[in-house]
C-alpha cells in the first residue's frame, strides 16, 4: 500500500527511530511501512492518523480500491 508517511515524517524533521518511538514500534517497521513492504494493522493505522492529525485515507492510498472501482 502506497503512503505519504515519509513526507509527513520529513515535514516534522523526525528520523525513523523517532517516529517509531512515538508510535511504539521499531525503526524497521517504520522503514517497511514507508517502502510499502508492510501494510499496518488497523490499530497502527489509527495511531498514525492521530499522530499526524490526518484521515487514514489521506495517508494511505488503497491501490486495490482503484482496481475494484
Amino acid at each position: 500500500m502506497k503512503n505519504i508517511l515519509k513526507v509527513l515524517r520529513a515535514e516534522r524533521d523526525w528520523s525513523q527511530a523517532v517516529l517509531g518511538e512515538k508510535l511504539n514500534v521499531s525503526r524497521q517497521t517504520i522503514n517497511a511501512l514507508e517502502k510499502g513492504r508492510y501494510d499496518p494493522s488497523l490499530p497502527l493505522a489509527f495511531k498514525i492518523s492521530r499522530l499526524f492529525e490526518r484521515a487514514i485515507e489521506e495517508i494511505f492510498e488503497d491501490d486495490k480500491g482503484e482496481e475494484n472501482a
Binding site: S26, Q28, S41
Partner: peptide, 8 residues
Amino acid sequence: ELDEYLRA
C-alpha cells in the same frame, strides 16, 4: 513483545 511487523 515484538511489534506487529517484526512479529509477522
